Simulated scan of single mutants.
Amino acid sequence: MSELSPETAIALQVDPVSHDLGAFDVRRAVPQPKCRMVGPFVFIDQFGPAQYDIGKGMDVRPHPHIGLSTVTYLMQGAIDHRDSLGSFATIRPGAVNLMTAGSGIVHSERSPQSERDAGGKIYGTQTWLALPDALEETAPAFESVAAGDLPVIEDTCAKARVIMGSLWGVTAPTTCHAATVNADIILGAGGAMPIDADADERALLLVEGEAEVDGEPLALFTLAVLRPGRAMVLRSGSGARVVLMGGEAMTRRHVWWNFVSSSRDRINQAKDDWRAGRFPKVPGDEEEFIPLPDVPKTVSYP
């Protein structure tokens, strides 16, 4: 992680922390001590590209969340989502799943049987968005937006799918609880895409190929937090895939395991509720669960 000079387009570069999940690695850029949030994004994971062995797949057992929305976006593969509201959805490339935890929700994420049978691929991002203060205890909700319902901007050697928010004159139908920008950008050889200055905070994550922003190279899988208030141009000489994330600046949040809140007391209450079995069950996935950890991998106390 390195801070750069005031003249640079990139204000901060954040090297991710990698977690080996067996079949694939998860790279976690946020939260880290010097980068706890980018706009409402309080957690940024990127995984793959990877391929499962035949018969293998993802099995994230039921676990709880409060005070956030999870955003799951795939470039390859498929994941079955189930939650305590009774929602079920299989997310596929180009679609987005938005799960708003609010006062509390439980969900599981598993590979469909068809992916296990074929030795399917997995490649994508999962991010968490902190909810505004007034909505931290909102009723939980889930929505799945199909790839065909997300706007796509195309130009010569450049294509971008808007996952959330308004960008380049179009608006995604995905619910935003706070001003949010999120897009999947694919650049061909010689392709370029403008990065507007409207959002309070913005970051770019290069997940494939090579690219630069205003002439400054992006490092693969490293989060590049951009200088605020400056319009920029993203370019690639040979082709790239880049995820844009950001939005309105928010007051810092406490993060402990899967819980996000402006109040440490609220997080402690969520811990007690999960230990005591007071969260609801996930219909169709009631038998297993992830126990509360003694020492979680994700902690960020401002």
Rank of each mutant, 00 (worst) to 15 (best):
G215P: 13
K271A: 02
D198T: 12
R266N: 06
N268P: 03
E208H: 10
S238L: 04
H254G: 02
G237M: 08
S236G: 09
K281V: 15
Q269K: 01
L205H: 03
R235K: 10
F259P: 03
S238M: 06
M245V: 08
E288F: 14
M232E: 07
K271Q: 14
V233S: 06
R235G: 03
D273S: 09
V213E: 09
F259W: 09
E288H: 08
L244I: 01
D285R: 02
L206S: 05
R235N: 11
P280C: 09
V242W: 09
L206C: 08
G239K: 02
G215T: 02
V233R: 11
W256N: 07
A203T: 01
R253T: 06
V225S: 05
V282C: 13
G246S: 08
R275S: 09
M245G: 09
V282A: 12
A240L: 09
L244A: 03
G209E: 10
A240S: 12
V213I: 12
G229K: 08
F221H: 13
W274S: 00
T222S: 13
L244D: 04
D265L: 12
S238F: 11
L223F: 11
F259I: 00
V213W: 06
F279Q: 01
V242S: 05
R241G: 14
R275L: 15
A231F: 14
P228F: 15
F279A: 00
S261F: 10
D214E: 10
D273Q: 09
D198W: 15
V242D: 11
P280S: 11
D272N: 07
A197P: 15
V233T: 12
A240K: 01
P280K: 02
D272H: 14
A219R: 10
L206V: 04
S262E: 09
V233G: 01
A240D: 08
I195F: 13
G246Y: 12
D273I: 00
G246D: 04
K281A: 15
E201Q: 15
A276I: 00
R278C: 13
V242P: 10
E286S: 10
R278V: 03
D198P: 07
R227M: 14
E287T: 06
S263A: 06
A199V: 01
M245W: 14
V233Q: 15
A203R: 02
E286T: 07
E201I: 04
A240W: 06
A270P: 11
V242C: 08
A231I: 02
A199K: 04
R275Y: 11
F289I: 00
G247Q: 05
V225N: 04
E248D: 14
A231E: 15
P194F: 08
G284A: 11
D214Q: 03
R266D: 15
W257M: 06
G239I: 02
L206H: 06
L234F: 12
A219N: 11
L206Q: 04
S263Y: 14
D214K: 03
T222G: 07
R235L: 01
L223E: 03
P283F: 12
M250P: 11
G237H: 09
